[in-house]
């Protein structure tokens, strides 16, 4: 787990602004506000056993390491 070189996958994307994301392999969840976004990230990371990462542009990704 220390060497997250391989097998990292984005399991979900959580965004507020639709224009920042486009469809890809992983599902995109849209939140109305920052509070909902944070809650979604928390829930998704717990459900999927992943880690929430902040891309600092209002988009969060849930990554399974």
């Amino acid at each position: 787990m220390d060497n997250n070189i391989d097998n990292d996958t984005i399991v979900a994307v959580v965004a507020m602004d639709e224009e920042k994301v486009s469809s890809g392999d992983s599902p995109v969840f849209l939140a109305k506000n920052a509070e909902e976004q944070e809650r979604l990230c928390l829930l998704l990371s717990r459900i999927m056993g992943g880690v929430a990462h902040d891309l600092e542009n209002g988009v969060y990704i849930i990554v399974k390491h």
Binding site: E38, C41, L42, S45, V51, A52, H53, D54, L55, E56, Y60, I61
Partner: peptide, 19 residues
């Protein structure tokens, strides 16, 4: 920003404010 650092070394990106 969202990067956790120890002194000047980047450890990882932490998304959730609570974390």
């Amino acid at each position: 920003g969202s990067l956790l650092m120890v002194e000047d070394v980047v450890i990882m990106n932490v998304g959730l404010p609570a974390t």
